[in-house]
Write a protein that binds this DNA or RNA. Structure first.
Lengths: 338, 338
DNA sequence: GCTGGCACTCAACCATTGAGAGTGCCAACA
DNA sequence: TGTTGGCACTCTCAATGGTTGAGTGCCAGC
């Protein structure tokens, strides 16, 4: 159905439209891509491409622009992923170096990705699934209140306020030692199980303080931190479109909804490959004028979480995909190392 | 110079323009505010107000709109702060209740403020100046690496990765006990001093591990967390203006710059009173189409940090000021209590 | 000092027009 | 059969010009 030349034309239309932001006509195409055929021939091919649904005309006397289906074909078969420049690689290295902890890695990565792609970047916090508990600490703040601190093997630290109910320092220390003895080295799932059992065989002198603390711990271990995302590059939405209310507003709103972003990333990412969702392929309606380029990240076998970029369907897919892939790899490496 | 009636007219112009978003003419003014004089009289007064720089005409055949100077007069002398509705008070209480820790309080407050004012809210993280160190913990993650955890009396928890350099578990425990003995109860300033001394009298067996850990601690204690801000309500910028590029873009960009926001808040807030910066009164140029309503928050004597709202100069100052004041009070109270 | 009247200004709206871009189709050609 | 040049056609865009209406400034009279 689509011979080589038609594919070339489609590729040219996508490339040209992405860089010029204007519908592209047959004459311009022949000139800019030296196609060795006449505009009339190109027109015939374009008519076919339009009939097949790969391109469309905004209005009768305008050039063609790619449809979502056209972008899809481009991404699947026509675009080769553009490797990052040396400067970009170096920028990534220097920017990520010196990250303090997991949260810092995520924050840096999201800003970096936004900067490279000049679009809106989203990074999900790493999941705890393949992580183990490293340390539990109880810190009294006053006679009545204190802090429960949980450290896991990825270096993540969580805390929750707890009621001490007037327990002695010895009791607090005993409980801490007990919790460490029981929990350290366990995965979250195992820990939840262990905590349930522990509740039944708490030493008598630790009953009072132990029960509420275990309840808090239960909640903390059972909650997945990968239910959070970081976002950056919102100002880049300017480049998006000129129609503020119909196009940008819904995107802005979606970006403030963690739940939406999580579902989106979850649907698209989750493997270490870079994946693309174009326009209407997104199930979330307000983002159907939008494309999402996403990837899972983590060590090579075990996907920890997802990250991605949101931009107009009219985006430079090869570059964006390269950037997403690069950042996903770097963030994975940094998480393992540091 | 400005008699009672002229002030009334100015107040009416501000009120009307804020709610209607259209230049207001003499006829509309007389009708909507039953001024008991004719439009012609109002016109004379408006001519004076314009001469004095309180109002201006977008173009010859349009009504008047307030200038920054007009808003300033309105805020200083004409607008009485509108008390919050019962529903709003209750919303604040339920929304703030159940906050887990300091960070959570800040996050909730900023979303709340954005929701009430329907504008962009900014909350600075509380300063540590009146806070003391509560606990220091060292958690080994592997033979070589570990985590330094610092808990202070406000319930804030910070962590940093550290090198363990193959120290034994006993050495790590000894160092932890030493650090706790030396630092707990101290203010950040005192702690920095103490750490400097401690470096010189480290027991021989703790030299190797102690020095890098103390360096990290030094950095951690010396860094003020109030150098961070939380932002919410960015989608509300839609309401801002119809000119995206000239008006909204610079604001979006400023909102991603923590440094800018901090300086802004610092300049305006810092007392427990609600203060207003209108349009060009802002020293930061990209925000000169913008007003900032800000206040310090904390316990009554001791200001911990600032919070505020960014919106168009054409904003409902009485309501916004009331909301900022209320949230500042609640957040202060919650920080003290929990 | 206030008011009604009146001439004046200017943005906003609408319809019209011409130019230009780009197409679709067709007949001719290789 | 695929390609090409030619040509009529469509539609957007920008410019033009006339009309309307809101709102003003000024002035003479009360």
């Amino acid at each position: 159905m689509l011979d080589e030349r038609k594919l070339t034309i489609l590729r040219a239309i996508v490339t040209d439209y992405v860089s010029m932001r204007e519908p592209v006509g047959s004459r311009a195409l022949v000139e800019r891509y030296s196609l060795d055929v006449s505009p009339a021939t190109v027109r015939n091919d374009m008519a076919v491409l339009e009939e097949e649904g790969y391109i469309t005309q905004p209005h009768t006397s305008a050039g063609r622009i790619p449809t979502d289906k056209g972008y899809r074909l481009f991404v699947d078969r026509l675009g080769q992923v553009k490797p990052l420049s040396m400067a970009e690689r170096r920028a990534i290295e220097t920017f990520m170096a010196g990250a303090i902890d997991v949260d810092d890695i995520v924050r840096r990565a999201v800003r970096l990705l936004a900067q490279i792609t000049q679009q809106v970047a989203i990074v999900q916090y790493p999941s705890l699934s393949s992580v183990t508990i490293r340390h539990v600490e109880l810190v009294p703040l006053s006679a009545e209140r204190g802090l429960l601190i949980l450290v896991n093997s990825s270096g993540r630290v969580d805390q929750r306020p707890i009621e001490l109910l007037g327990s002695s320092a010895d009791q607090v220390a005993d409980l801490r030692d007990l919790l460490n003895a029981e929990l350290v080295g366990l995965s979250p799932a195992k820990a939840v199980e262990q905590l349930r059992q522990l509740l039944d065989r708490l030493p008598a002198n630790l009953q009072l303080i132990g029960q509420p603390v275990i309840a808090v711990l239960f909640d903390l271990v059972g909650t997945d931190p990968s239910m959070q995302v970081a976002v950056a590059g919102v100002p880049n939405l300017t480049r998006f479109s000129d129609q503020f209310d119909t196009t940008i507003r819904p995107v802005l709103e979606a970006l403030e909804e963690q739940v939406v972003l999580l579902r989106l990333l979850g649907e698209v990412g989750s493997t270490a490959e870079v994946k693309v969702r174009i326009g209407h392929e997104n199930s979330y309606e307000p983002l159907q004028a939008t494309s999402l380029v996403a990837s899972g990240y983590g060590n090579s076998n075990d996907i920890w979480a997802n990250l991605g970029v949101v931009g107009p369907t009219r985006m430079d897919y090869p570059s964006t995909m390269a950037a997403v892939r690069a950042v996903a790899r770097y963030i994975g490496r940094y998480l393992v190392e540091g």
